[in-house]
Amino acid sequence: MLKAILSQIISLYRICLHLFAKADTVQYPEEMPYLAPRYRGRIVLTRDPDGNERCVACNLCAVACPVDCIALQKAEDEHGRWYPEFFRINFSRCIMCGMCEEACPTYSIQLTPDFEMCEYDRQNMVYEKEHLLISGQGKYPGYSFYNVAGKAIKDKDKGEALNEAQPIDIKSLLP
């Protein structure tokens, strides 16, 4: 009993001391807080080192999204490369949890330290691919999914990916 009362008094004392501590918050927007590169803000789609869209429309971000705010549709170019025909994020639902980035096998979808995306009209919170796609590689420079995948695309035929042997000549009878 006494211990409990004492503990209350100690917490009163400790809290009181915080009167003299420096505030953790800053005077935003006059003073901008530091946000680490891995801060989870506005979502972008990045490009690979060759400047092509990294997104291969695998749908893993959409399925990982706990609020189901990502919708996309796969399309394929004439050389077999997959890309999203549309890619839509409804930021009015997004909770910036970063699960999509975790799920992305191509480093395409990335969260950025930008969080200033308020709108007066909720409809403007719906971002399409043209709003999401940036021209750079984002946080993971140098990675290109198709360079390690087995699928042939334009300018990368079978056997030309990383760590791949030349295609088999099935007519060979050598043991």
Binding site: A62, C65, D68, C69, A71, I89, R122, M125
Partner: peptide
């Protein structure tokens, strides 16, 4: 139970 995109698939028409 893993169906995705419920809140985005029609968001281009209306966000509601």
């Amino acid at each position: 139970h893993r169906a995705s995109g419920r809140t985005a698939m029609l968001a281009d028409v209306s966000v509601h």
